[in-house]
Write a protein that binds this DNA or RNA. Structure first.
Lengths: 148, 148
DNA sequence: TCAAATGAAGATAAAAACATCTTTTTTGGA
DNA sequence: TCCAAAAAAGATGTTTTTATCTTCATTTGA
């Protein structure tokens, strides 16, 4: 459903939302270590996200990536769109071109409510709101601390 | 979640379940046309499924593919396993290695019930039962008739 | 001012997924 | 017996995804 790239991107942005701001930046190296993602690949991703104004960065010593207040007002869906586009997420579970309520594929009625749930969760909340939930519910972005 | 290959495979097998038996076989060409899938690619897939005893076939004139009674006792999950393996389906939605109830990723609680539903629907029913449901509920495998 | 840290950019590469082409084997029927 | 139809098998090609490497540009702070 999501490419590796999109998964890395989501996790990075949530990570940045929790650990950075304009005054506290983090470099790719650290981020990649914390999230256990391939470092050069993540660097590319963050570059793209930066160009698309989904994350912020500064160069030079003490530089790094961070989420500005503006960045925090985007949604997870904005990230997915930027990396994967919308197609993969919206298409039929069995690959039918015109699977819809009136001509459902055999798993349509199972797949649709789930997709809607995920979609609305990705679209309707800002990164900011999402992160606050994460902090409340104690969900997890990296499991490095737990020994993988 | 599912590769194209797995999607084609599932659709082919359900198609064969509905339209064939030991006496009424169908060739790749026809199947590929009906399901709008790339023909040589589907041929490869059916070969693999045949070698794994998930579909049956005979060579020569009037030959083709069909689902034997034994084949019909398999589950959709058997197909998925055979084509994609189990990993992609079971892994965390955000790619975490140890995402579980006690260390859930931010979308864990949404993703898990869905996966369980799909999984049990794929594991617990035989092809035979699945097809009967399809016939009852009028869900659709190909939309060729509808003009795509 | 300059060295070091950092992101940006572009080229390259490896692997997986997706797809096709060609040849061989089998087999029913004329 | 021989031909044509069909699957089986194996080689090859293409595209996308994933990943790395190298060089360049920028900025801070000593």
């Amino acid at each position: 459903m999501l490419s590796n790239a999109a998964k890395y991107a989501i996790r990075s942005i949530l990570y940045l939302a929790i650990h950075t701001d304009r005054k506290n930046k983090i470099g790719v190296k650290k981020i990649a270590e914390e999230l256990s993602t391939p470092q050069p690949f993540l660097a590319k991703l963050l570059q793209q996200l930066s160009k698309s104004k989904l994350v912020s960065s500064t160069k030079g010593p003490n530089g790094g990536f961070f989420l500005s207040e503006a960045n925090q007002q985007n949604s997870i869906w904005d990230i997915v769109e930027n990396i994967d586009g919308t197609v993969k997420f919206e298409e039929c579970f069995l690959g039918l071109k015109k699977c819809e309520d009136k001509n459902p594929c055999p798993v349509h009625h199972m797949a649709v409510p789930f997709k809607q749930k995920i979609l609305s969760s990705f679209k309707d909340k800002t990164i900011d709101e999402f992160t606050r939930e994460i902090e409340l519910s104690g969900t997890v972005l990296t499991l490095k601390k737990l020994g993988i």
